[in-house]
């Protein structure tokens, strides 16, 4: 009762990274709240799926296994969550701010009349004082999120309604094994009790999913290009630099929109969030939406022809110059100086 539950997305039998990241976060929140961490997996052929989540410190995994539950559609998954939450009364529910989580979360929150906070970048536990009604609350979930196009950060609480629901984008939280030998309990729920035949109204007739090609999220060095790269051809320079340094290539949205590079390399509020050891920003001005996705990088180098580019204010090294000039020199001197 009153546990913390994470809705786990599954694609081709594999639990999504964003869900594992949330289990890691959920484990530490559950420790603070002194409650259990639960996972919910809905899909088809789920035997053994618990092995993927137990190492993250899951105490109970609920599975609902039915061929009709994969691929995801809104209403059947909503029905499972609504029924289960009415029974189990979790205090917190977390899900990925993905095209699934952002489709499912609001529908569930509407049905249960429980608040939902979108795209949180931090989750904390703390008290809340409602001055107007002279009430205090202990151990609420602080749901911290950017809004207003990234220009403000708001802390949102749900004092009265349960569960407190929040979505979080992929890459925002860190994924970390809690204990490789952790063992929880598996509870198989009977689909018939949680989903009605009439819930299956939307039919998926075609699906073409690609595995994410670039792995910028896991890269320890990122070479990112912006609109200032000027062309797709100039981006080749960045791929050269990346190959030299063992890095991945990232990009700003302006560079993606201009067609210099594929969308899955976009870094920022509407792309992925990264925190590499080294981030080299090439011809990126540093608008807030971009910064939001890379400001936690350990070391930031900015290469920009404009000495006053906003990104320079968060950079450890500012190189004032053109990318055409500087990038080849980086390659040259790295080759010369690395043994």
């Amino acid at each position: 009762m009153n546990n913390l539950i994470v809705y786990c997305e599954i694609e081709d039998g594999i639990i999504a990274d964003v869900s594992l990241e949330l289990l890691t976060k959920g484990r530490s929140l559950a420790n603070q709240l002194n409650c259990k961490l639960e996972a919910l997996v809905i899909g088809s052929n789920l035997d053994g799926v618990e092995k993927q989540v137990f190492p993250y410190g899951v105490d109970t995994v609920y599975t609902v296994d039915d061929p009709r539950l994969y691929p995801y559609t809104s209403i059947p998954h909503t029905s499972v969550l609504v029924h289960l939450f009415k029974e189990q009364k979790p205090q917190v529910c977390l899900m990925g701010a993905t095209s699934i989580g952002r489709d499912l979360g609001p529908r569930v929150s509407s049905s249960l009349h429980s608040g939902l906070t979108a795209d949180c970048t931090a989750l904390e536990i703390g008290p809340h004082e409602d001055k107007k009604n002279n009430k205090t609350y202990e151990n609420l979930l602080y749901q911290i999120r950017p809004a207003f196009g990234g220009n403000i950060v708001a802390t949102i609480v749900n004092p009265e309604c349960r569960p407190q629901m929040a979505t979080v984008r992929e890459g925002v939280m860190k994924k970390e094994i809690y204990d490789p030998n952790y063992k929880g309990e598996v509870v198989k729920l009977d689909p018939k009790k949680y989903v009605a035949d009439t819930d299956f109204v939307v039919e998926v007739i075609d699906r073409q999913m690609e595995k994410s090609k670039a792995n910028i999220k896991g890269a320890s060095i990122i070479v990112a290009g912006g609109y200032g790269m000027g062309s797709k051809e100039n981006f080749d320079m960045l791929f050269d630099l990346a190959a030299t340094l063992g890095a991945e290539v990232g990009a700003s949205r302006a560079a993606v929109d201009a067609g210099f590079v594929e969308h899955d390399r976009q870094i920022g509020q509407t792309g992925v969030t990264v925190r590499p050891k080294l981030y080299i920003a090439c011809g990126i001005s540093g608008q807030i939406q971009h910064i939001a996705g890379m400001q936690d990088s350990s070391i930031i180098i900015s290469i920009n022809s404009d000495p006053n580019a906003p990104i320079n204010s968060i950079a450890d090294y500012v190189i004032t110059g053109t990318v055409e000039d500087v990038v080849p020199k980086l390659i040259k001197y790295y080759k010369k100086n690395s043994k």
Partner: peptide, 27 residues
């Protein structure tokens, strides 16, 4: 059900940065 507890404007914290030019020796 959701209440905004606090709102913070995003202001960059300026950090000390090293300024370089594109000169070969500096790179």
């Amino acid at each position: 059900p959701t209440k905004v507890k606090a709102v913070q404007n995003v202001v960059f914290q300026a950090k000390e940065s090293k300024q370089l030019t594109a000169a070969d020796n500096e790179i």
